[in-house]
Design a protein around this nucleic acid. Structure first.
Length: 443
RNA sequence: GGGAAGGUGGCUGAGUGGUCGAAAGCGGCUCACUGCUAAUGAGUUAUACGGCGUAAAGCCGUAUCGCAGGUUCGAAUCCUGUCCUUCCCGCCA
């Protein structure tokens, strides 16, 4: 949520920044209009309330002096005043709600260091490693994973429909091992505190993290309990300190959590959705930082290297994109995407997105800090980054480390997490489906 | 799921219709005192929004006793709904 005071004092600057991220600046005029009317109504209602309060206090005095009639007259007068105040108060409340709902749909303002305009204006700010080439015909991960018996795509679809993946045997172990590997690295090398959070969040929580209202269609939602399945662990980590005032001397807070992530990916089908490229449920390790406002951009750089350290430890080539203003997520001011190369499918795959949301989420979630006891509360800056998402990592890993004989080498850093395996060889197939057997039974 | 009790300031906890933003204690902060630590005394101690004003401060108003409504001239206090917590019973990994 943007600061209404800033919008009031610098409306043109706000409009310019919204324009830079391809958002309609006309919304600002609507907000200001509702705000001005809200302020007028509120001021008047509060004045009446003050008058009412003074009148009310006079009544017990009159009663004490035995001036019953005067008291009754005053009551009647106050009742009328009260009615007027109520009407004004209703207006004010309605106008405030109107202003706030407009405000809730306004995205964060882009930082001055990022390119303006649409998606195509991104900048590649870093490249690591050389794209892998082979002297044999490399396979894509959707073939490798099936040939090695790591993933059963067909049965995954049977269980839950397209976009749901069933891992088997060493495939499942690889998934779990990677999670463990990443958590260990972030804890030991980068000093993150691990949380294990609920996988379903209340409406209030997803509003604070700014996933609602804009991304409602993307989230899985249980209507019966009004709970939202995590689209990422970010909203869980961001809500830990909702409605709290932190001690500024504890900042920055570096938090991480593993969680499954559920996304509808509405309408997704066809291109770029094969294999593990885009699925409805995937695993991810997420990092969130709560920082002082003045250090948040330095912390963003750290967050980025915390994410890419995973890729370097696994020996995977990657590139870092600085996203253009029109392409950053709703809550972000600046965002880096990290992409790894999948040499079998020959594609760049996004595995991490590291964003500085500044005070956008802390304002919404009323998360504050004091620099020292007694100091005025301020909003910390909140940053989030994937560290990293699993399926595309698995895809790139299999494709990158595949060997001519169809097996896949295991990078050294990962070997302890795979029971010491140095190479992935074909798993024994699952019990084969007996064609027609089901029909016979049911006949 | 059934029953009971309860949600008050950073914490504990009093307050059952009027001057209560709220007693008291603890903690925090400031000052004084003691050669340090400790102890003692005095003072102070929320947040948000709006208005005036400013370099900053400050002053005024309003709101906030889980949340949302209602009754009343007036609500922490009464009524309704709701959420949460604790205990007992049931169920359950």
């Amino acid at each position: 949520m943007l600061d209404i005071k800033y919008i009031r004092t610098e409306p043109e600057a706000v409009k310019a920044k919204l324009t830079a991220r391809l958002s309609d600046p006309a919304a600002i005029d609507a907000v200001l209009e509702a705000d001005a009317r809200w302020r007028a109504a509120t001021a008047e209602a509060e004045e009446l309330q003050a008058e009412l309060g003074r009148g009310s206090k006079a009544i017990p005095q009159l009663m004490k002096e035995g001036k019953r009639e005067e008291a009754d007259a005053l009551k009647a007068q106050l009742r009328e005043l009260g009615d007027r105040k109520s009407a004004l108060g209703e207006d004010a409340k309605r106008l405030e709600a109107e202003r706030d709902s407009l405000l809730f749909y306004l995205p964060n303002l882009p930082h001055e260091s990022i390119p303006v305009g649409g998606e195509e204006n991104f900048l590649i700010v870093k490249e690591f490693g050389a794209v892998k080439t082979f002297d044999f015909e490399a396979k894509a991960h959707w073939d490798l994973a099936v040939d090695l018996g790591l993933i059963d795509f067909t049965r995954g679809v049977k269980l839950s429909g397209s976009g749901f993946v069933l891992y088997k045997g060493v495939g499942a172990m690889l998934e779990r091992g990677l999670i463990q590997f990443m958590l260990d690295l972030h804890r030991e090398k980068h000093g993150y505190t691990e949380w294990s959070t609920p996988f379903f969040l209340s409406r209030e929580s997803v509003l604070a993290s700014a996933h609602l209202p804009k991304f409602q269609p993307e989230m899985y939602h249980d209507a019966e309990s009004d709970l939202f399945a995590l689209p990422t662990a970010e909203p869980a980590l961001v809500n830990i300190h909702r409605d709290e005032i932190l001690d500024g001397r504890d900042l920055p807070l570096n938090y991480m959590a593993y969680s499954p992530c559920w996304r509808r990916e509405a309408g997704a089908a066809g291109k770029d959705t094969r294999g593990l490229l885009r699925v409805h449920q995937f695993d991810k390790v997420e990092m969130v930082k709560y920082t002082l406002p003045e250090t948040s951009y330095a912390e963003l750089e750290t967050l980025l290297t915390d994410a890419t350290d995973i890729l370097e430890a696994l020996g995977l080539p990657y590139r870092v994109k600085l996203l253009a203003a029109g392409d950053i997520s709703f809550a972000a001011s600046k965002c880096y995407d990290v992409e790894i190369h999948a040499p079998g499918a020959d594609m760049w795959l996004e595995v991490s997105s590291c964003s500085n949301c500044e005070d956008f989420q802390s304002r919404r979630g009323n998360i504050r800090f004091r620099r020292e006891p007694g100091a005025k509360p301020e909003f910390p800056h909140l940053l989030n980054g994937s560290g990293t998402a699993l399926p595309r990592l698995v895809a790139a890993l299999l494709e990158t480390y595949q060997l001519a004989d169809g097996t896949v080498a295991v990078p050294e850093a990962l070997q302890p997490y795979l029971g010491g395996r140095t190479v992935l060889t074909p798993e024994p197939p699952p019990p084969s489906a007996q064609k027609g057997r089901g029909d016979a039974v049911h006949a």
